[in-house]
């Protein structure tokens, strides 16, 4: 084993150590700014009851696990966050969308075995019997726990969905808003 006795050499090593510490400290700080947050982001594209259930179960689960959660509702998914349908002041195609689509989450059908709504009713009954939280309850819990719900402005414009028809406490945005949250997330899903 060698022992360094030369004071010059020791001073040089010390200076080098300080420089390295500085360089690596800066690099780590820079890299840390690129780490994603503890966030889950979900695109809710579907207006099916079962798929909306899946989205809200994941969202409430993520929030319960101490993560933040963003849900981006677009296209048929808008029906999930609608409150009531209004037709006044709308164009004919907008009125058609309003009348053909579920008025709110209580009217959603299921993606398989819907049988014109009978299947959805049965599914809701079975879930109630099995003590599964309802979609309404899950959304309420998610909002209590601070979920960020974003409504797609383009989908609203296409289908003529007005702000007054939507539930309270929503953000409005586009693809950049979704991607901003998705790029900052550890889990991103499209449902």
């Amino acid at each position: 084993m060698t022992t360094i006795t030369d004071t010059d050499a020791i001073a040089k090593l010390e200076a080098r150590l300080v420089k390295l510490e500085q360089e690596y400290g800066d690099r780590i700080a820079e890299l840390e700014t690129q780490l994603p947050s503890h966030r889950v982001t979900i695109v809710c594209f579907s207006g099916d009851y079962d798929r909306a259930m899946a989205a809200f179960i994941i969202a409430t689960g993520a929030l319960a696990m101490g993560y933040e959660c963003s849900m981006y509702f677009t296209f048929w998914g808008l029906s999930v966050i609608k409150n009531e349908a209004q037709t006044s002041g709308k164009s004919l195609p907008e009125k058609m969308f309003t009348m053909m689509l579920p008025e709110n989450m209580a009217k959603l059908g299921i993606s398989k075995m819907n049988f014109a709504g009978v299947g959805a009713k049965m599914m809701r009954g079975i879930m109630r019997d099995k003590n599964v939280a309802t979609l309404d309850e899950l959304m309420e819990v998610a909002q209590e726990m601070g979920v960020r719900i974003i409504s797609c402005t383009m989908a609203m414009d296409i289908m003529g969905v007005r702000d007054e028809e939507m539930k309270d406490g929503l953000d409005f945005g586009g693809v950049g808003t979704f991607l901003g949250d998705a790029m900052d997330s550890r889990v991103t899903l499209f449902i």
Binding site: C152, T153, M154, D171, F172, G173, G174, V175, G176, T177, L179, G180, D181, M183
Partner: peptide, 15 residues
């Protein structure tokens, strides 16, 4: 004229 552009631009410049 897209109001979604407001939060979209904020998210853009952040990235």
């Amino acid at each position: 004229t897209d109001r979604g552009s407001v939060p979209d631009f904020q998210a853009w410049v952040k990235r």
